[in-house]
C-alpha cells in the first residue's frame, strides 16, 4: 500500500507541475491587469496544437517545438490585449468598473479559439504528440518514473526558474512588477503601462502554451482540452490567487490530491476533487495557504 501511495504522489507531482505552469499564467495576468483570464485553458490547447503543427509540418525537434508554441502564443496573447482589451479599457466611463467587460472578453476569446481550431486539419480526431523520450522507466527507490515524466518536471522547473529570474533580476521584470503594484506611479516614472500589460499577456500565454506541449503527449488532444484550466484555478486559489510560489505549491498539492483521491475514493471522484478544493479553500482560508491577508484590491 505504501508503494501505491508513493507511486500516486510521484505521478501527482508530475501533473501538478503542469497545473502550476497554467496557474502561474492565470495569476500573473490577474496580478498585473486585474482580469481573470477565462481563455487560459484554450491557450493551453492552442499551445498543444501549435506544437503538433510544428511537428507535422516543420518536423522540428522538441526543444524548437516548445519555442514555436511559446512564440506563437506570446503573439496571440499580446495581440488580444492590444486589439481587444485596450479597446474595452478605452471605453471605460470614469467611476465605473470595466472589469466585467474585460472578463467577458476573455470568455469570448475562449470560444473563438475553440471554434477557430476546429477549422484546422487534424483537430477533428483525437490525437496526441509522441513522447519526448522513450526507453526504460527509471526507478527511484521502489517508485517507477517514466523518462517522459522526468522531462516534464525538468521543463517545468526550468521555466519556473526562468520566470523567477526574469521578474527578480531584470529591469523589465521589475518594471512589470512595479506596474502591477502601482500603475499610476509606474506611468509617472515613464514606464509604458500599456506595453507592459501586453508583455504580461504575452508571457502568460507562452507559459500556458508550454504547459499545453507538456500535456500533449500525456493527454488526448481535442479542442475541448482547455477544461483542464479548472485544475489551474484550484491551484491558483490554493496560493491565494496572488502568490507565484503559492501557485507552484498549489499545483503540486492538487496533482497529489487528485491521485490520492483516485486511489482511495475512486477514479470517478477525481474530477470533483479540484472543485472540492476550491470550495474548501474559499470557505476556510480565502487568502490561500501561504498566509498573508485577504487582499483588498484597490481599483
Amino acid at each position: 500500500m505504501t508503494l501505491l501511495i508513493l507511486q500516486a504522489i510521484a505521478s501527482g507531482v508530475v501533473t501538478g507541475c503542469v497545473y502550476a505552469l497554467i496557474a502561474l499564467s492565470l495569476v500573473i495576468v490577474y496580478k498585473s491587469t486585474d482580469v481573470i483570464n477565462f481563455a487560459g485553458g484554450e491557450i493551453v490547447m492552442i499551445g498543444g496544437y501549435a506544437g503538433m503543427l510544428a511537428l507535422l509540418y516543420l518536423g522540428l525537434p522538441y526543444i524548437l517545438i516548445f519555442a514555436f508554441a511559446a512564440i506563437a502564443t506570446f503573439a496571440l496573447g499580446a495581440l488580444f490585449d492590444r486589439i481587444v482589451l485596450h479597446k474595452v479599457l478605452g471605453r471605460a466611463v470614469p467611476g465605473q468598473s470595466i472589469l466585467v467587460a474585460m472578463v467577458i472578453a476573455t470568455v469570448g476569446l475562449s470560444y473563438v479559439l475553440k471554434g477557430g481550431v476546429r477549422v484546422v486539419p487534424y483537430t477533428e480526431e483525437v490525437r496526441r504528440l509522441p513522447p519526448f523520450f522513450t526507453g526504460e522507466p527509471i526507478f527511484i527507490g521502489p517508485v517507477v518514473v517514466q523518462r517522459q515524466d522526468i522531462a516534464i518536471i525538468v521543463v517545468a522547473v526550468v521555466v519556473m526558474a526562468a520566470l523567477w529570474a526574469f521578474f527578480s533580476l531584470t529591469l523589465t521584470g521589475k518594471a512589470l512588477r512595479a506596474t502591477s503594484q502601482n500603475p499610476r506611479a509606474a506611468a509617472l516614472v515613464g514606464i509604458p503601462v500599456r506595453r507592459m500589460r501586453m508583455t504580461v499577456w504575452g508571457i502568460a500565454s507562452a507559459l500556458a502554451a508550454i504547459a499545453g506541449v507538456l500535456l500533449a503527449p500525456k493527454l488526448l488532444m481535442t479542442p475541448d482540452m482547455g477544461v483542464i484550466v479548472i485544475l489551474a484555478f484550484a491551484a491558483a486559489i490554493i496560493g491565494g490567487f496572488a502568490s507565484l510560489p503559492g501557485c507552484i505549491i498549489g499545483g503540486i498539492l492538487l496533482g497529489v490530491i487528485q491521485n490520492i483521491v483516485g486511489l482511495y475514493v475512486g477514479s470517478n471522484a477525481i474530477s470533483v476533487a479540484p472543485f472540492a478544493v476550491i470550495m474548501l479553500i474559499l470557505a476556510l482560508r480565502p487568502q490561500g495557504l501561504l498566509g498573508g491577508r485577504v487582499a483588498a484590491k484597490k481599483v
Binding site: L171, R177, A178, N182, R184, V189, I191
Partner: peptide, 26 residues
Amino acid sequence: IVQVPEGREIFPELTVADNLLLGTWL
C-alpha cells in the same frame, strides 16, 4: 518633466533600491 505625486505612490513589494532603479527606466 518628472512629477512626484501626492500620497504614498511607491512600489511597496519592491526593495527601496529597485524603486530608485526604476526611476532610470527611460
